[in-house]
Design a protein around this nucleic acid. Structure first.
Lengths: 352, 352
DNA sequence: TTGAAAGCGCTAACAC
DNA sequence: GTGTTAGCGCTTTCAA
């Protein structure tokens, strides 16, 4: 029996009270007599009444929902962030709308617009690009709080949004430092799109060389965070006149491609070639030999993003027109990364 | 400038027309003159008006949103399903609300109820349990179409919901058949919760033994789909009086645990012990030696689930009270699995 | 403490 | 083809 939905009117009628009284009981208004509460609750029970959040949202001008834009939820990095974020949001009574941008900045902005039409209370964004004009203008004039996840925007958009960032630079500095200390000089760094995480990783690598006063014999290969690029870049690094003796993959997708190429060439990780990846996955832990990583707590990244957004949400007040207005300034949270040395790193093969 | 949101009233006033005309233009009503369309669109542009989907939903009695309950989005299996589902939903203009049940059946039902209050048009469920009474009663009387993902419910709930199922049995039969043909007789099967996928896998294993007229020397270890269980089960299988010579892990989490134990014991996969896993992940492909798997197209699983739901949604009509009513019967879609033999499977070590 | 009434922003009859 | 009107289901003044 697909039950026709009961509305508040019916509850009020059955209880013989006004709708406003039902509303007060259900929303925990202080000024309700125990008798009233009883009558109403009895009616609610007997009808199996469930309030319509749509109508509540329209009236209250808040949906208790948050839009989350990722490029690809099937990427372990992003799904772990999503888990952390959803759990934190749910704990505060918020629901999460999720969408995939498929690495297309045009979809980023389309989804932001859609979420705005759905009147989400806030936005959690892991954008496909840091310089899309459409996205920029949408965010510059957004009416809700926004938290960027590991992204950095310039201009007005950047000034309006909060962000949760990972300290890729430090982790990468330690990773490359470890390789240099093992005797490597020609480190190959495979990066993804030109976004903050790529820039910071490059800086970290430079830091490591600079701190040791070494010539910049490293090679950087930029591209997309995809296995194809990981593989092509690895080919390039190994086929160079002066081949890299150690490779650092800036993400799990790149690692997949790199490993595929390494295996096809019959190279032994941690012997013929040293290898480091960014972000822990089951593969890095269980591979033989285990693969060194620049690690971070991805779930905490999502959790912090959600909590930052929630704190901005709570800091809102309504102006005289009944519209929400953010009173708090955007904030930036920096989360640590940590290099974990593993047997995939060893002295270079040609070190006599 | 956080822009106060324009509403349809303002657009109508600016264009000097009635609200209903604005509505008609925006919703593509056939009977509108080009002149009217122009006037309205000009006003819409100049105000940057974006319709309020909340109000639309309340009025139209549909939200164009779907609730998706998973146990843990950070699990590669589920995030791939989610990607497939979200992409298909988005293509038809639907948004996805995502929540994690954390493998807790009580959260399953709580989230279903919440989604119902949010008036989602349909539900996509990868439930934590197939026998929770709360979930059962909610689903038995649900007002919207429901698609179960790789789950099977009995009773009224099962009769009301559609489902997309994987043919685990065939894949497992081939996997175990392969092991038996290599000479293994004591196969250890590690399973998760007592749900359809576990039952089917067990049946597949039995099929393989039966087809060859072999004694049932296999061992089955049931538990949770978690690394801990994978590890403990592997210990048990290897420490038995008659240790298993081949292990089949019923999922990627179980594989993680199994591999950890195998490595700690210094056993060589594909030599001292044969290994098969269920569902492809980067680890199974890139491990050395590569790990045989019972494979399925997880993204297609999500896509089919979404498309099945969408087809049920399209088959709805409104009754005289303006309520939606499903006209189509629930459907079941069965998707294939495929065993992929790899070097992790070899004749048993004791085979002279 | 409770009820009556207005209205959130939109759509869909219905009338012209 | 366009305007007027009556709500969708709820919350929230405002009075009583």
């Amino acid at each position: 029996m697909a039950p026709q939905r009961t509305n508040m009117r019916e509850v009020a009628d059955l209880a013989g009270v006004a709708m406003s009284s039902v509303s007060r009981v259900l929303s925990g208004h202080p000024d309700v007599s125990p008798a009233m509460r009883q009558r109403v609750m009895a009616a609610v029970e007997s009808l199996g009444y469930q309030p319509d959040m749509l109508a509540q949202s329209l009236r209250r001008k808040e949906t208790r929902s948050v839009g989350f834009v990722v490029s690809d939820i099937s990427n372990p990095l992003q799904s772990q962030i999503a888990l952390g974020a959803e759990t934190a949001l749910r704990a505060k009574g918020y629901s999460m709308l999720l969408t995939n941008s498929e690495n297309d900045p045009a979809l980023d902005s389309a989804h932001i617009r859609l979420f705005q039409q759905r009147r989400v209370d806030g936005l959690l964004l892991s954008l496909a690009a840091e310089d899309d004009p459409q996205t920029f203008s949408l965010l510059s004039s957004a009416a809700t709080p926004i938290v960027l996840i590991d992204r950095e925007l310039r201009g007005e958009a950047g000034r309006r949004a909060s962000s949760v960032l990972s300290d890729h630079r430090t982790g990468m500095r330690d990773a490359v430092g470890h390789l240099l200390d093992l005797g490597h000089r020609r480190v190959g760094l495979i990066l993804g799109q030109p976004m903050r995480f790529s820039r910071e990783r490059l800086e970290g690598l430079k830091d490591a060389y600079a701190a040791r006063g070494l010539q910049p014999l490293y090679t950087v290969v930029e591209g997309q965070l995809e296995p194809r690029h990981g593989r092509a870049a690895t080919q390039a690094l190994l086929d160079a006149a002066e081949p890299a003796t150690a490779i650092v993959a800036g993400g799990n997708q790149l690692l997949n491609g790199a490993l595929a190429e390494i295996q096809q060439r019959g190279l032994r990780v941690g012997a013929d070639l040293s290898l480091v990846s960014c972000d822990e996955i089951s593969l890095t832990q269980l591979y033989q030999p285990p693969i060194a990583v620049v690690r971070r707590d991805t779930r905490a990244l999502g959790r912090h993003a959600a909590e930052l957004l929630l704190s901005q949400l709570e800091a809102q007040e309504e102006d005289d027109q009944g519209r929400k207005r953010t009173t708090r300034e955007p904030e930036v949270v920096l989360l640590p990364t940590e290099f974990v040395a593993r047997p995939s790193c060893a002295p270079p093969a040609d070190a006599a």
